[in-house]
Design a protein around this nucleic acid. Structure first.
Ligand SMILES: [Mn+2]
Ligand SMILES: [Mn+2]
Ligand SMILES: [Mn+2]
Ligand SMILES: [Mn+2]
Lengths: 224, 224
DNA sequence: AAATCAATTTTGATTGATCAAAATAATGTG
DNA sequence: CACATTATTTTGATCAATCAAAATTGATTT
């Protein structure tokens, strides 16, 4: 249906909105996200707007149309289900799965995805804790409604929390997360927080003590 | 490394050789296999020859070089392992897996393939009975040495045979094969063969009687 | 208001992959 | 051998996706 290139454009706009409440995405941000030149984005965006997939507000940015959002959600669903599959079924190191999924999301058919979803038992979040859009394209309120976006930098001390999502998904940080056991689902209790020294200490259920920078702690969302 | 297009060219030449003992593949056959125009093939072949992936004998055809064969074997390995995975792990209908694998073979990385191979227990043939090249690119003698290429049209009567490979891999024929139970691995005994009427009757272990045309029977290879 | 700056758009060009149609070469037929 | 047939190659063009560099625009300073 759509080329890999088009799918990547649409998905990038959707995930941008996920982080920053559905506003228009500036052309520069899109160019950055896709690692292409600004001029390329302008050209491409005009073509996609012509196809009714997105609205171009010149000198302002882009916004997905209904059709564009549906297509983007389908790609994002593939991406996140594939990531989950790679980690759960194929036992791959989760620091690398994003890159793999970046290619597979364009090659996995709806029929194959269907089977993967089934095999995994219809998961609702991926290994990083990001929500998996439903087959109908519904996104479980990601940046918005659900939780109040607490993190290890802001949650109450000495209470049991559950790691919900890792914001910084660079391989290096993900490896650190793996090593400390602070993966989504892990139960954690912040024992001490020192804003002056910029250090957060916590107790990870089943994985012992973990010390982490305050800024980094702000990239680990918790819940409950 | 190589584009999907290049991978498809190389694989097509390799599988052609599989069927017809390693000779040069005529340009027309390649155009046919890839469903592109002859002129496109000429252009592309000259480019690939320039990259040392194949040898172009003008007005004659193409032949893979060492490097080309290695690359082609890697793609074919991906294709066949993916097919096996789709059937075995994802329980997909085997009549459709070829098409799926045609796309996935270009998106599955070596690391992912590694895990799939592991998960499947290092299979040596795909669901159609075609040999899966090894990780080093070695092809288990496909059209050649191994068996004497017996089929349901030529094997001895009243003996137990094992279905080894389905030559005609069109969805329609594969569906027929599924319905009769004559899949690779099935045990079968030819009870009657009528060359005049063009009919072959056989007894499929665990799936009852099956009647099949003589020509069609020649597309079902047996062994043992 | 004028000058400056950063973001965006325009312009002109390139690359990979393709096609249709014309030109050419090899092969078979009378 | 001359002609017809077929396979292959050449030619000239298109399309998607991209870039670098120049032009434009809107906003921010002075
Ligand atoms: Mn992608
Ligand atoms: Mn993810
Ligand atoms: Mn393919
Ligand atoms: Mn196969």
């Amino acid at each position: 249906m759509f080329s890999s290139t088009v799918e990547n454009y649409l998905k990038a706009i959707l995930v941008h909105g996920e982080g920053s409440g559905g506003e228009v995405m500036p052309m520069g941000a899109l160019a950055e996200a896709l690692d292409v030149s600004p001029g390329t984005v302008t050209t491409m965006v005009k073509a996609l707007a012509g196809q009714g997939l997105l609205a171009h507000r010149p000198r302002e940015g882009v916004k997905l149309t209904k059709a564009g959002r549906a297509a983007a959600a389908a790609v994002l669903r593939k991406h996140r289900l594939v990531e989950t599959f790679l980690v759960t079924t194929l036992k791959m190191d989760w620091a690398g799965v994003h890159e793999e999924a970046e290619a597979l999301e364009h090659a996995v058919s709806d029929r194959v995805l269907e089977r993967i979803d089934e095999l995994l038992g219809h998961p609702t979040v991926d290994p990083h804790g990001d929500p998996i859009p439903s087959a109908k394209g519904e996104m479980a309120g990601p940046g918005g409604a659900s939780s109040s976006r607490l993190t290890l930098a802001s949650c109450e001390l000495k209470t049991q929390w559950s790691v919900a999502r890792i914001r910084d998904q660079t391989p290096a940080f993900l490896n650190f997360i793996r090593d400390t056991g602070l993966k989504p689902g892990a139960r954690v209790r912040v024992t001490r927080r020192d804003p002056a020294g910029g250090v957060v200490c916590c107790e990870v259920k089943g994985a012992g003590e973990a010390v982490i920078g305050l800024g980094e702690a702000g990239n680990i969302e918790v819940r409950k």
